[in-house]
Design a protein around this nucleic acid. Structure first.
Lengths: 193, 193
DNA sequence: GTCTATAAAGAGATAGAC
DNA sequence: GTCTATCTCTTTATAGAC
């Protein structure tokens, strides 16, 4: 019951781990710190997860899945390519900056995964990137964006993923403001207000 | 002689540490691994550095200084705001992707610094960002870039800093190609070829 | 499912000889 | 400046009782 358990309790534990991995980084977060935050002793942790790395894997899986779900919801019913790009950008920043945990860990801590876990998760990552690929391709074909798709996509996602390094949730700008600013920067002249 | 030693030997050791921190991350690189790569025993390491974190500090300092120096050289004699932006972008990608070590560590491993080291290095970082601030401000005033300076700067640097996550040195694109692509993406329509 | 207790390994760092 | 030897502490993980 350890590997494929999606009980409410397990989700709580994964959420707590996500918060700590986000705040301190995976390597610096010990199993004792994790257990204490979960209200249990460190030995009990290994009843829920086979090892520490499995916790990271669960956090990253949860981060990718929530990013994917919110992105799909954001795109629902949207037709115009530029509107799609804005919606996708807002969705991405929303999971990154509002619920600043699992998605951030998914972006920054993949190096600590075992090859097996990486192999398991790489499909999710590719699925998410495919969403971006198709929307950016549409924008290029509609002539509102210019450049090679893969380069534009990597630059856009880089600009977004780096926001976690400088964004201040207490500041005056909302994630949606930032999304608008990026899309306006990438496209010729201002199209949105 | 440990703290303020810039001998050739010390620079070699810092360069080796930079490579390992870049490849495996700071936390996962043990002092034994460092020492082995340096051709000495782990005990000898502490003749050169007070502790492990001091090695990281030296690596980051070296990364910031080389980024700064190359940026200054790139800007020398350049007058046009767009040309300055392109030069600065090329310089940044050059230190990040060609000599893929100390500058990358400087960007990604600041969380493992002690408050004292951070305080020591934050001035260097601010100095480097000021270069970017002034060039982007010039571009906005010259009407070739649009938006708030700080937002544009963070997005541009984010897009650049994220390249280390996906750039393939064996691929067909050079760092200079990428720099051109980014500047063209940020500015209205294509200005450079 | 959680506890206590602890094994086993690895980490950073030190001391003193050469 | 490097070595050997080792200390001390922390880490992940396990075993068995409750």
């Amino acid at each position: 019951m350890t590997l494929t358990n999606n009980s409410k309790r397990r989700k709580e534990l994964v959420a707590i781990a996500a918060r700590l991995f986000f705040e301190q980084g995976y390597e610096r977060t010990t199993v004792r710190i994790l257990a204490e935050a979960m209200g249990i002793k460190s030995g009990s942790l290994f009843h829920h997860f086979t090892d520490k790395q499995a916790i990271l894997c669960a956090v990253i899986e949860s981060g990718m899945q929530s990013a994917m779900q919110i992105a799909h919801e954001a795109l629902e019913g949207v037709q115009d390519p530029q509107d799609k790009l804005l919606a996708l950008t807002k969705a991405h920043l929303s999971t990154l900056l509002t619920d600043r945990n699992a998605h951030v860990v998914a972006l920054y801590e993949w190096r600590s995964l075992t090859p097996e876990s990486l192999h398991h998760l790489v499909g999710l990552r590719d699925e998410y990137e495919s969403l971006w690929r198709s929307v950016i391709q549409e924008c290029i074909q509609a002539d509102v964006l210019h450049g090679e798709e893969s380069v534009v996509r990597h630059f856009a996602l880089g600009a977004l993923n780096w926001t976690v390094q400088w964004y201040d949730p207490q500041g005056q700008r909302t994630p949606d403001d930032l999304a608008l600013a990026l899309v306006n920067l990438l496209m010729d002249r201002t199209h949105f207000n």
